[in-house]
């Protein structure tokens, strides 16, 4: 299983902070597609993705046990 973390507007939109998805061997892009199709999560084109707390691109392949975080545009400072 892959653990998916959601923050800020994405979490508000989905109504939860984490979900678990069977996505071993998928790319980040495929996971985004699934999030869009299954949870109607919008705006994923403009978010960054972190895999295990490091930024990753859409081609990154996921493995069981990975933690994926969708990072909306940040606004710290």
């Amino acid at each position: 299983m892959i653990k998916v973390l959601l923050f800020a507007q994405l979490r508000d939109e989905l109504g939860k902070e984490t979900i678990s998805i069977e996505a071993n061997g998928w790319s980040v892009a495929e996971l985004k597609g699934k999030m869009k199709a299954e949870y109607q999560l919008g705006g994923l084109e403009t978010v960054m993705t972190a895999v295990n707390e490091e930024f990753a691109d859409d081609d990154t392949i996921l493995s069981d046990g990975d933690t994926v975080a969708f990072i909306p545009p940040v606004s710290g400072g």
């Binding site: 909306p72 940040v74 606004s75 400072g77």
Partner: peptide, 24 residues
């Protein structure tokens, strides 16, 4: 750099609503 790469978000609460601020 904080405004580019650090995963921190702010939610503004206004008199007439609230919104997550992104991509300052």
């Amino acid at each position: 750099r904080i405004k580019e790469i650090v995963p921190i978000w702010k939610k503004e609460h206004w008199e007439d609503g609230e919104t997550w601020v992104g991509n300052q």
